[in-house]
Amino acid sequence: MKFVRYADGPSSRVGVVTGDLVRVVDGPADLLPLIEAGEAELLAAGRTALRRGATVPLPDIVPLSPIATPPTVRDFYAFEQHVRAGRAWRGLEMEPDWYELPVFYFSSPYAVMGCGPWGPAFHQQAEALARRGLSAVLLEAPGQGDTRMAGGLHLDGNVDRAFSAALDAVRARTGYDGRYGVWGNSFGGLLAARAAVHDSRFGACCVNGASAKPEPLPFRTAREQSRALLGVDTDDEAAAVLRTLWLDPAVERTSAALLVLHGGNDPLVSLDQQKVFLGLSARPTLRVWDDGDHTVYNHSAERTEFVCDWFRAQLGRA
């Protein structure tokens, strides 16, 4: 039985996937209450939905994370089936001591990523950070991903508060009080830089393919995305909101180390536009891929490894 949580206007719904349809589970907007009620309750709710739940075409839904706010996150080593399968792949028997003392890992420090419109799209980067002992929060800024589709939020000049609130939440849940990093791709790079400027808890910031002074782009799809992100109807309104986000190194600075990535063939952002960010920090680094596309997607693996090594070097210092 396949459950799904999906956007329903400013809220969300839970359903069961059957073929090309989703059968709506009546009541809950999140899977967590059903899971907490126990397997029997979860399956009963699913069977009821399959018998008489309202139908929604599967291609029409906007899927969301199954659980809006997980109460805890465990790495794979906390689960017997993963440990058993992993050891079998290496030709090993199950380790008996695991049953006496199951292990899982605490990772630190934290790298908060304001990368793009859908946080789950950046799991590969999060995994690369995790391999270096860096935990990651895949953060969707207001107007991006679930924040707009499920929460009805839009981006404005107060976006910096969202990143600070994310750090507050991480600290409250983990007790971690060290340095954090922030990594943004494309327009998210500007948001990452603004976060580093306005919150001194950020010790490292990566800007990848952004303009410090964005304007509405002359492409229909880009204009439509900008209007949806900002919650406006015209290019003039979009431009007015974007101007509230501009950064000027003459008056704004960050104590964080700053890494700027640029693709030489980027059709959207020029090297000169990117170089503006370097003036925000006393510790700037510029890395250019001469044949790189926008956000260096055509060298994504190399780019990700380079950035994660840089974050580890910056945040791993005593």
Rank of each mutant, 00 (worst) to 15 (best):
Lys213Phe: 04
Asp168Cys: 11
Thr174Leu: 00
Leu155His: 06
Cys206Tyr: 11
Glu215Ser: 15
Ala141Tyr: 13
Arg179Pro: 10
Phe202Ile: 05
Gly143Met: 01
Glu140Phe: 09
His154Arg: 11
Ala162Asp: 14
Arg131Gln: 14
Asn185Asp: 13
Gly152Thr: 04
Asn158Lys: 12
Ala195Cys: 10
Leu139Asp: 01
Tyr180Glu: 05
Glu215Thr: 15
Pro214Tyr: 10
Glu127Val: 15
Val170Cys: 05
Gly145Leu: 01
Glu215Pro: 06
Phe163Leu: 15
Ala204Trp: 10
Pro214Trp: 11
Phe202Gln: 05
Pro216Leu: 05
Cys205Ile: 07
Glu127Ser: 14
Val159Thr: 04
Phe202Leu: 02
Asn185Lys: 13
Ala204Gly: 08
Gly175Leu: 01
Glu140Leu: 05
Pro214Lys: 04
Cys205Lys: 09
Leu129Gly: 08
Tyr176Thr: 00
Cys205Gly: 09
Cys206Met: 15
Gly143Ile: 01
Leu191Tyr: 02
Leu167Asp: 04
Ala169Met: 07
Leu129Val: 00
Ser135Thr: 08
Leu191His: 04
Arg179Gly: 14
Ala204Asn: 04
Leu134His: 07
Ala141Ser: 08
Asn208Cys: 14
Arg131Leu: 14
Tyr176Ser: 00
Asp168Ser: 12
Pro216Gly: 02
Ala212Val: 10
Gly152Leu: 10
Lys213Ile: 09
Thr174Lys: 04
Val197Thr: 04
Gly175Glu: 01
Arg179Cys: 10
Asp146Pro: 14
Gly188Lys: 01
Ala136Pro: 08
Asn208Pro: 10
Ser186Met: 00
Leu138Lys: 05
Gly189Val: 05
Ala150Lys: 13
Pro214Leu: 09
Cys206Arg: 12
Arg194Met: 12
Ala195Lys: 09
Gly145Met: 02
Leu138Trp: 06
Val159Trp: 06
Ala204Ile: 06
Leu167Pro: 03
Gly152Asp: 05
Phe187Asn: 00
Leu139Lys: 09
Phe187Arg: 03
Ala210Cys: 06
Ala136Gln: 01
Asp199Met: 07
Ala195Pro: 03
Gln144Leu: 14
Gly145Phe: 08
Asp177Thr: 14
Phe202Asn: 02
Gly151Ile: 08
Thr174Phe: 02
Gly133His: 03
Asp199Pro: 07
Trp183Val: 15
Ala165His: 13
Thr174Pro: 01
Asn158Arg: 14
Leu153Met: 11
Ser200Gly: 12
Leu167Tyr: 07
Leu129Ala: 13
Ala141Cys: 03
Ala162Gln: 13
Leu190Gln: 01
Val170Gln: 02
Lys213Gly: 06
Phe163Gln: 10
Ala128Cys: 06
Asn208Met: 12
Gln144Asp: 11
Asp177Met: 08
Ala126Glu: 10
Ala196Glu: 11
Val170Ala: 03
Gly188Leu: 03
Asn185Glu: 13
Arg194Glu: 08
Asp160Thr: 15
Gly145Ala: 01
Ala195Arg: 09
Leu155Ala: 09
Arg131His: 12
